[in-house]
Simulated scan of single mutants.
Amino acid sequence: MKRTHLPLNALRVYDAAARHLSFTRAADELAVTPAAVGQQIRALEDHLGTVLFRRTSKGLELTEEGLAGLDALREGFLKFEESVQSMQAGQASDRYTIAAPREFYAQWLAPRLAAFRNANPGIRFRFVADENADFTETNLDVAVRLVDGPGELEGIELAPARRVVVAAEGAPDLWIDWPGAPLPEGADAAIEVGNAGQALSSAVAGMGKAILPYLLVEDALEDGRLATLEGPDEGRRAYWLVAPLPQWRQKKVKSLVAFLTD
């Protein structure tokens, strides 16, 4: 059976205006203007073909038609809220599906997720190798991406956007080029690789020097596998933890974000 189209936003405005018997107070509750409330009410009256409010010397009053459907409407909103709560309760709060670049996972993310799991026994992880995977198709909770901002997603920088030129001791003065870090003007690349992880491995192997995110090479610098040639300097791209707004609002995602950014 085909369902009737319901103007839910206008009905929500109508409910607020009916409770307050004031477009102004309804507007305050809904964080809109009184004019916007009035427009929604007029549109709803046009849709229903009836008048819901009348103005009197005492103020705003509901008509008989306006009163007639009010109880059922409010019961319906309560059902909506119960439905949303049921869907939220059904979320697997102990399971995370995460997409991240492999090199970032190995160098930075894995030990921190291990610590997070130690603090939250029973947590389960599923990892997706493609950090640009579609959130819906892969049921992702969050992704880590090397980008210059979250774009249309919600997100937070895991560390400031800094880059550094690094090389292993005794490495030749040759550039290792990868798509995420353009070489200085006039520089020739002796080695071309496909991503930051391959550039890091090439630099650690002593094949040349590379421009890499500081966050990615921090451990290699500390343990002496790499040395700093230039920088660290401010960069354009950083590792961002991102997710669509519905996932970002989940309690389990908020908990993970808080742990990783503490």
Rank of each mutant, 00 (worst) to 15 (best):
A106E: 10
A106L: 07
A106D: 11
W108V: 06
L109V: 07
L109S: 04
L109H: 10
A110F: 08
P111Q: 08
R112Q: 15
A114D: 15
A115K: 04
A115Q: 12
F116C: 12
A119I: 07
N120F: 07
P121F: 04
G122W: 04
G122M: 00
I123G: 12
R124G: 04
R126E: 08
R126M: 05
R126A: 09
F127G: 04
A129C: 00
A129G: 04
A129D: 07
E131M: 10
E131W: 08
E131S: 11
N132P: 05
D134S: 06
D134P: 04
T136H: 10
E137C: 01
N139D: 14
L140F: 01
D141Q: 00
D141H: 00
A143K: 09
A143Y: 09
V144G: 01
R145N: 04
L146I: 04
V147E: 11
V147H: 06
V147C: 02
V147S: 05
D148V: 00
P150G: 13
E152H: 09
L153Q: 15
L153S: 15
L153K: 15
E154I: 10
G155T: 07
I156Y: 03
E157R: 15
A159F: 11
A159N: 07
P160H: 10
P160T: 03
A161G: 13
R162D: 08
R163G: 12
V165K: 09
V166D: 06
V166P: 14
A167G: 12
A168E: 06
A168P: 14
E169T: 15
G170D: 09
G170R: 08
L174I: 13
L174D: 15
W175Q: 06
W175E: 08
I176Q: 03
W178L: 11
P179I: 03
G180I: 01
G180D: 04
P182H: 13
P182K: 12
L183A: 05
L183P: 13
E185W: 00
G186E: 05
D188K: 15
D188Q: 14
D188H: 13
A190N: 08
I191T: 08
E192C: 12
E192L: 12
V193Q: 03
G194S: 13
G194K: 07
G194N: 09
G194F: 09
A196E: 05
G197F: 01
Q198T: 03
A199T: 02
L200M: 09
L200P: 04
S201K: 09
S201E: 08
S202V: 06
S202K: 08
A203K: 08
V204S: 13
A205D: 15
A205H: 12
